[in-house]
């Protein structure tokens, strides 16, 4: 069952202050992402793709407008509430994996589970299950430096889904990988979307990666300029 995780950005503006000048990333942006969607966002560097992920994931604040996930407005949540919401509802997959290098693969996947009341045994069971899903059941004790790029990204995905969030935010998840590894990662994301009902928003520069998404939006200078709908059957 897909929970109500419809994501809506309404009249959202975002600007950054750089010295005395203010740089506008986008102005009055609207976006509606239904629950269970797999949305790819493309666009040139600096177009605001990652900023959209940051705003939806609550790791950056909007300048004006509102961001709603399900029935919850997240743009006016306190820092602490936003942290708790993020821990439960959002998984992040980063371009450079962002694994903690001194922790093993299993320990990296366990990290978000430390935010729950699960016992160590329950956490370990969950970690093993997830590592199995991403095909790394025999690599749990390895340090990130002992894994290939593709394997590290799988650990990154495992960590992102450890808390079973409904939303996965992927920032260039294949940007640092060779073609074969990239395809394996995209296959996993596709399965998470189609079989587990996760809502996935993926920022990418790679046109072939968009074929795994249900639809693609092109962003340029803070505006969606082109839409491509329904890649997947």
């Amino acid at each position: 069952m897909t929970l109500d995780t419809r994501i809506q950005l309404q009249d959202v503006s975002k600007s950054y202050r750089l010295g005395k000048s203010e740089i506008s990333i986008f102005d009055s942006l609207n976006l509606d992402i239904p629950a269970g969607d797999f949305l790819a966002i493309m666009g040139p560097s600096g177009s605001g793709k990652s900023t959209i992920l940051n705003l939806i994931g609550g790791i950056d604040r909007i300048t004006s407008g509102q961001v709603t996930v399900g029935q919850l407005r997240i743009d006016n949540l306190s820092e602490a509430k936003l942290s708790r919401w993020r821990a439960q509802q959002v998984g992040f997959v980063f371009q450079f994996y962002n694994l903690l290098p001194m922790l093993t693969a299993a320990q990296n996947v366990e990290l978000p589970l430390l935010l729950t009341a699960h016992s160590r045994r329950e956490r370990m069971e969950r970690v093993n299950t997830i590592l199995d899903i991403v095909g790394l059941d025999t690599r749990g004790k390895h340090l990130p430096s002992e894994l290939s790029g593709g394997q590290q990204q799988r650990v990154g995905i495992a960590r992102a889904i450890a808390m079973d969030p409904q939303i996965l935010l992927c920032d260039e998840p294949t940007g640092d990988l060779d073609r074969k590894s990239a395809e394996e990662i995209l296959d996993i994301l596709k399965i998470l979307n189609t079989e587990m009902g996760k809502t996935i928003i993926m920022v990418t520069h790679d046109p072939s990666a968009t074929t795994y998404a249900r639809r693609t939006l092109h962003l340029d200078k803070g505006q969606f300029v082109r839409k491509e709908l329904e890649h997947m059957a």
Partner: peptide, 14 residues
């Protein structure tokens, strides 16, 4: 910096 930002993004508190 990146590690701190990452664990905080995951949901760890300040």
């Amino acid at each position: 910096l990146i590690e701190i930002a990452t664990v905080r993004a995951i949901g760890f508190s300040r």
